[in-house]
């Protein structure tokens, strides 16, 4: 008996006039463009670089451990060298002494590469408006996703990674430097989360009291 698992909404009804062979091919064979396939592969296997500066690194490490498990989202292997990594998470405060080191590591990451800025200090200097701290890593690196918090919860970092994956899924890069036009083409604009989630947040009127566990 042939059976398959589908949800009721997405399961397509069998088409009139088709043979069993057509039905079989429709259920089991997927036709897709090469660049879509490559984008799907790229977004589901982002390998992070083992880079942590400060307190946010502890929360990033917590996101890698068993309770929150970043590996389920494809960030399976954390690489010690930038040559084998795809993504650098600037976890923690960016110090002036450390800035050239971060820049060098970013340069040594191979294409394609992405940057997640984690924590208030990396986003904008955070509460450290002080002589030795760079006010945000975007002063010298291009950032893809900003994860806010001090430190952000591991779940927030997971959300940041998912947003990055969505964004990468919409990117198309040229197949070769010989043919195609160069540069990254973003199919859909990245949405600002503040705008999307604003109505939901404002609608919350019942807040939990801190007197109960």
């Amino acid at each position: 008996m042939n059976w398959s698992l589908e949800s009721a909404e997405t399961a397509a009804a069998p088409q009139r006039g088709g043979s069993e062979m057509d039905e079989f091919i429709r259920r089991n064979v997927m036709m897709v463009k090469l660049e879509d396939m490559v984008a799907w592969g790229r977004k589901n296997s982002i390998w992070p670089f083992n880079f942590g500066l400060s307190c946010c690194y502890v929360e990033m490490a917590t996101a890698f451990t068993s309770r929150h498990d970043l590996a389920r989202f494809g960030a399976e292997v954390i690489r010690g060298t930038p040559r084998q990594a795809d993504m650098i998470v600037i976890a923690g405060t960016v110090f002036r002494k450390m800035a050239p080191v971060v820049k060098q590591l970013y340069d040594q990451l191979l294409e394609p590469k992405w940057v997640i800025s984690m924590g208030s200090c990396a986003n904008s200097g955070g509460m450290y408006d002080i002589y030795s701290v760079v006010q945000g890593v975007d002063k010298f690196l291009p950032v893809d996703v900003y994860v806010s918090g001090c430190p952000p919860r591991p779940e927030a970092l997971l959300q940041g990674l998912l947003l990055l994956q969505e964004s990468i899924g919409n990117q198309r890069r040229p197949l070769s430097w010989v043919i195609n036009e160069q540069g990254i083409i973003q199919r859909e604009e990245n949405e600002v989360q503040r705008v999307i989630r604003g109505p939901e947040r404002i609608a919350a009127t019942e807040l939990r009291s801190p007197d109960e566990v």
Binding site: Y106, D107, P174, S176, W177
Partner: peptide, 8 residues
């Protein structure tokens, strides 16, 4: 041939 050429 494949991929992009970027120089940092």
């Amino acid at each position: 041939v494949l991929g992009q050429r970027k120089n940092a």
